[in-house]
């Protein structure tokens, strides 16, 4: 780890002011940050610990929908009765993430901002545009079985790792951000950026911006939602492909749908294409297959990850079949 000083933030505004200074980063659950510090992928000179900031750990639900404090721990959110009953997709995505220990530590805000698992990104001995702009992407011609088939560019094809973000983006979640310039609300779908020509720029957040909460609007049919994750081993692994789905069903017809994909995109991948295909469609396998084809229509395979196109489609179909049953 690069040498840093450690400060405990007791006051939200003071923490934000500190973090706006160059070389300063927030530290919350630390489960991704500590790994990045150890690998010297991140090299802050100062860490501002924010876990003791007040008013940021609460989980509440009501007519306004669900509000998750950014410092709420993954395990607590997964187990919260309102989340389990009203947004099962969120609870399931959380329980399919990491390990029980990590879920006791990691926060909701930190989860959304976790960095890619791309091996080239996490190894400072290898070129990586995301870590070191202009150094080149090692994955495009390298080992890319685990890389993204959606949203990649000639500069970066790193997969976004979060399961939670996939579930939340399907639920139209909004992140509440406090920063040097005040408070703003950003649709989660707009928080992460495609790599394009500037993969080093991962989100729209500015220095000092702090996610304080995630709000999920009321979505009655989210009770009929599901997260399906496919991986090489049975647990404690990132996704090869995952699907977050919610269906609003009227008899044999789909009134509306929410679809997002994980493990295949350079950001949490909301698929409006799939949703459009499902809206008004009959509740039957053919509709799901059409939606899956639409979701992956823009997919670009590399030499090792082409299987993800089929796998993601099948995962999505399976999720829709399960939730539609």
């Amino acid at each position: 780890m690069y040498p840093f000083t450690y400060v405990r933030g007791d006051d939200r505004q003071a923490a934000v002011a500190l973090a706006a200074e160059p070389g300063t980063e927030f530290l919350a659950g630390g489960t991704d940050m500590l790994q990045l510090l150890k690998d010297e992928v991140r090299r802050p000179r100062r860490l501002v610990e924010i876990t003791s900031l007040s008013g940021m750990s609460e989980i509440s639900s009501g007519p306004q929908g669900l509000r998750l404090g950014a410092l709420a721990r993954m395990a607590d959110v997964a187990d919260h009765p309102a989340v389990r009953d009203e947004y099962p997709v969120i609870s399931q995505a959380l329980l399919a993430s990491a390990s029980p220990q990590v879920r006791n530590m990691a926060t909701i805000g930190g989860n959304l901002l976790q960095r890619t698992r791309c091996a080239y990104f996490r190894d400072t001995a290898m070129p990586c545009n995301r870590r070191e702009p202009g150094s080149g992407c090692s994955a495009i011609d390298g080992e890319n079985r685990l890389h993204a088939v959606l949203g990649g560019s000639d500069h970066c094809i790193a997969t976004h790792a979060s399961d939670l973000a996939v579930a939340l983006v399907a639920c139209d979640a909004v992140v509440v951000v406090t920063g040097p310039s005040g408070e703003q609300r950003i649709k989660l779908e707009d928080l992460h950026l495609l790599p394009g020509e500037t993969p080093e720029k991962e989100t729209v957040l500015q220095p000092g911006d702090l996610i304080t909460a995630v709000e999920v609007p009321p979505l009655a049919f989210a009770r009929r939602s599901l997260y399906r994750k496919v991986r090489d081993r049975a647990s404690f692994e990132f996704a090869l492909a995952a699907a977050a789905v919610a269906l609003d069903i009227d008899g044999g017809t789909i009134r509306q749908a929410r679809v997002a994909l994980g493990g295949v995109g350079t950001k949490p991948w909301r698929s409006h294409e799939a949703e459009k295909a499902l809206t008004g469609a009959k509740l039957e396998t053919a509709s799901f297959e059409k939606a899956a084809a639409a979701a992956l229509a823009a997919a670009r395979p590399l030499h090792q990850n082409g299987f993800k196109i089929i796998l993601a489609q099948r995962t999505l179909i399976r999720a829709l079949l399960t939730v539609g049953a």
């Binding site: 630390g30 489960t31 500590l34 390990s99 029980p100 220990q101 990590v102 530590m105």
Partner: peptide, 8 residues
């Protein structure tokens, strides 16, 4: 339960 290696 937490992992102490990722805790400062």
């Amino acid at each position: 339960r937490v992992v102490s290696c990722l805790t400062l």
